[in-house]
Computed example of a mutant assay.
Amino acid sequence: MYFFVTDETNVTPTQAAEYFIYGGLTLSDKQLPRVSNAIANIRKKYGFQDIDRLKFDTNSRPSAVTADAHREAKNAVIEACHAEGLRFIVQMIHHNIAKPENLTEYSLNTVLNSFNERFLRDHDDYGIVVIDRLPDGQAYSMLKNKFQLGLQFPGSGYQLPLDRVLMYATTCDGASNISSAVDIVLGAFRWVVNSQGKPTKNGTERTLFEKVARMLYVREKDGIRYARENGLILRPKEIKAPVYQERYDELVKYFVDLGS
C-alpha cells in the first residue's frame, strides 16, 4: 500500500511566483514509520519543540531555533526522504494560463493520473491519497467526486476511474511528520523555480535542485529514464501563446542546466 501526500504552493501569483505548483510525496506503509521517526529525531536534534512547525519557509522558524539549525534541519529532512526512497510527483502551470476557479482540482487531477495510471500500476499496488486542507470545506466534495467518478474530462463526457486509489483524506500542518516532509520538498522545488533568472552567489538553486530532482518519479524506456509526464508534469500540454511557450522552454532549459 502506498500513500500519496500532497500540498500546493505559489498559490498567489507574483513577479517571482509565475507558476502554480502542486505535488507531493509517495511512500509505502513500510516507509511511512521510518520517515516519520527520522523526522522526529531531526526535530529533537535541532531544537524543535513538540508544538513548533518544521516547514521550508524561513518565516515559520521558531524563535528558539537558529537560522543555521533551521536550514540544517530542512536539509536533513530532504536527505531522510531520499534515503528512504520516497518519490516526488509535481505539476506546474503558469498563473496567466491557469483558471483560478478550479486550479487546485485541475492540478490534483494531473498528479492523481500519474499516481494511479503510472506509479501504482508500475508497482502493482494500491494507494491512499491525502491532501492538505482546503478552505471552506472544498476538499470534501472534491475528494468524494474523485472516489465516486474518477477523473472527468468536460466536453468529451469521458471519465477515467482511479481504480487503484482506495481512499481519499485531508490533513493539515502539524498533524504528522509527513506533512513537514511534503512542505519542505515542495518548498525547495518552489525556491528553485522562483530563482530562475536570479542566480545566487553560493549556488543554492543548484544544490536544492540536485537534492529534489533525484527524488522525482521516473520511468525507463529503451534504457532512458524519463521524469517528464511522470514525476515532473508541465501543463498545459499545448501552449498557444508564443510568449508563454518561451517561458516554459526557458524553465526546462534552466532545469537541464541545473542538472548538468
Rank of each mutant, 00 (worst) to 15 (best):
K237T: 13
D132G: 06
L149Y: 13
G155E: 04
K253M: 07
V185S: 05
M1W: 10
G47K: 06
T104F: 11
I131N: 04
N109E: 15
V243E: 15
K146N: 03
S60P: 01
D132R: 03
K99R: 13
R247V: 09
E84I: 13
P154V: 07
A40P: 02
P161Y: 01
Y140P: 02
L258V: 00
A175T: 15
R121L: 08
K144G: 11
K237Q: 11
V243L: 10
T200K: 09
P62A: 11
V90A: 08
Y168M: 06
D52H: 14
E205C: 09
V129L: 03
S63N: 14
D183Y: 00
Q49G: 15
R219C: 01
L232A: 09
F20W: 08
S28N: 03
N145I: 02
F119G: 00
Y19V: 07
P236E: 08
E220L: 01
A213C: 10
L216Q: 06
E18T: 07
H94D: 08
S141Q: 15
Y22W: 05
E205Y: 13
E79W: 05
I131R: 03
K221T: 12
L232G: 03
Q31F: 11
K221Y: 09
D125F: 00
F20H: 08
V65L: 12
N113Q: 12
M215N: 06
D125A: 15
K30P: 00
R121K: 13
T170L: 02
I42E: 05
Y106A: 10
A175K: 12
K44V: 10
Y106C: 07
L54E: 01
F255H: 03
K253C: 01
R43L: 12
G150Y: 11
A98K: 08
F209H: 12
E84S: 14
L186H: 07
L27W: 02
V130A: 07
A38V: 07
K44N: 14
N116F: 02
T58P: 04
L149H: 08
V129Q: 01
L86I: 08
C172S: 13
E238G: 10
R133E: 15
M167G: 13
W191N: 15
L143C: 08
L54T: 08
Q49P: 00
N177M: 15
H70F: 11
G85C: 11
E220A: 00
G197Y: 03
L120S: 09
I42K: 12
P199E: 08
L258P: 00
D52E: 11
E220R: 03
S36I: 10
